[in-house]
Nucleic acid binder design. Sequence first.
DNA 1: TTATAAGACGCATTATGAATGTATGATTGA
DNA 2: TCAATCATACATTCATAATGCGTCTTATAA
Lengths: 149, 149
Amino acid sequence: MQLKKYTDYGLRILMYLASHDADESQEGPKLATIREICDTFDLSANHVNKVVHHLGRLELIETRRGKNGGFVLAQRPEDISLAFVIRQLEGDERWIECENPYCVALPACELRGIVARGKELFYEYLDQYTLKSLMVKAPQLRQIFAAGR
Amino acid sequence: MQLKKYTDYGLRILMYLASHDADESQEGPKLATIREICDTFDLSANHVNKVVHHLGRLELIETRRGKNGGFVLAQRPEDISLAFVIRQLEGDERWIECENPYCVALPACELRGIVARGKELFYEYLDQYTLKSLMVKAPQLRQIFAAGR
DNA sequence: TTATAAGACGCATTATGAATGTATGATTGA
DNA sequence: TCAATCATACATTCATAATGCGTCTTATAA
């Protein structure tokens, strides 16, 4: 019972972009690249590649291919809900599996509903927070990220 | 992000025992056996073996070795918190991993605390429920379990 | 006291899925 | 056209959950 690294990477990428965008507010945000992210967080390019692609499909970031390509946030940090990001990247599966294989107790079992409601509470809580909530210490983050490249 | 089958099995075993105990209220509960559980839920004996052992160490059930051995609930269903059972069987790990490998953003990152709090909310919610809460449809469960053997 | 039925428990193996890697295509700018 | 960049399919590795096996210990009945 743990979030996937995949999800973790996605959140880190968004934080990186949020810090990056704020940085260059004058002349519009410069595009970040997969390479940059990998250098900063010491991650595998292939994996980050996939997460970036996924974030693009979710329209959380805008990607641009070709030379000088890259990506930026497609929404304001305060509009990106952590619940949404985590749910999407995790895949929003059931937290407990009752069919497949089928459990005989299922027709009379209360557990499924209880766990499902607990899960919803988790996400409702996360829904109070946005990418902006993660940027409370933005100056420090900018410094960390700048040092990494 | 899903509960382990191990945890699931543990909960099923407890439900089985709760239904079973209530059944024989006259002359004290008869011992259930691993074989019975396996037959009822169609699970592997080896796996159930381990879960039973674990439940015993947690003092949720009393086990008896030797011929005519088996196990019964060691506490009343209303005293067995679902939060406790799930936490223990899951192993109560972090839902997000920030060190190991270490993430550069950690010193300025808000995510860890947010996820940790969400996790606590999940368990606080579960803490409202007990094994007894799972037995709302006890008669139906008894019937299902009886048919299985 | 012996045979047997039960759990205890360590170790080995298998299965699953996350994590990572490789390769190539598509797109864009210089 | 070339090089940089994301897009995407496919393959491989690795971690660990899940399962299996064997043997020990304990308790009871015959």
